[in-house]
């Protein structure tokens, strides 16, 4: 499966945020998007997730499962917000997303305990999500990536609020996903530290 972006540009209101971005990622490859604040990293990820229309250009999938020509339905999107309910326990949150998202064709998600163990928090899944610290909440949001299978991960500043050990843990999760032939596009300043990583630097426009 290949993920192709061809001459993408996007606007917010009247302002052009970026233009003419193209890349080509095969399974097992990661793209790290870097750039100063306001250079359009989040906007690019939202365009890839299908949450924002591109002004020109297009995103498409080649060689993916039949019936999917946009990456939207085959992607996990981890944005700035964790998409978990504070009132529900971590377990209830994860079960909900596992059942609601379902697995994409070609893989299956991890079990609940397995996913919580992978982010190092297996012993606190009975707590309400709102009780956790910011770093723990972020880790649990990552566990959400594991409970349902999606070949493409779109991650927007995934390691915000995380400590050094969690950074390493996150790099491990990404590495495992790439080994299984997944695609990762992450807006992050953290060096992922392995081969097969492409990088895209967004410069932004000077106004």
């Amino acid at each position: 499966m290949r993920l192709l972006a061809e001459g993408l540009s996007a606007r917010r209101g009247e302002d052009l945020i970026f233009k003419d971005i193209s890349f080509d990622l095969a399974g097992g490859e990661a793209l790290v998007v870097t750039g100063p604040n306001g250079s359009g990293k989040s906007t690019l990820l939202r365009v890839l997730a299908g949450l924002l229309g591109a002004d020109s250009g297009r995103v498409r999938l080649k060689g993916g499962p039949a019936g999917f020509d946009h990456p939207r339905e085959l992607s996990h999107y981890l944005g700035h917000r964790n998409a978990m309910k504070r009132e529900l326990t971590v377990e209830e949150n994860l079960i909900f997303w596992q059942r609601f998202l379902g697995d994409s064709p070609g893989g299956s998600g991890d079990g609940l305990v397995e996913a919580a163990t992978a982010v190092g928090l297996a012993d606190i899944i009975h707590l309400p999500f709102g009780y956790l610290s910011a770093g723990q909440q972020r880790r649990m949001a990552m566990a959400k990536l594991l409970v349902a299978y999606r070949p493409i991960w779109l991650l927007d500043e995934p390691t915000a609020a995380l400590d050094v050990s969690a950074d390493r843990l996150f790099a491990g999760l990404v590495a495992r996903h790439l080994e299984r032939g997944g695609i990762v596009i992450a807006a992050t300043h953290q060096a992922l530290g392995f081969t097969g990583v492409k990088s895209l630097e967004m410069t932004g426009f000077f106004h």
Partner: peptide
């Protein structure tokens, strides 16, 4: 929308 769930809900099949 406030906690970001709406984004994920809108991305589904």
């Amino acid at each position: 929308r406030e906690d970001g769930s709406l984004d994920l809900i809108m991305m589904q099949e």
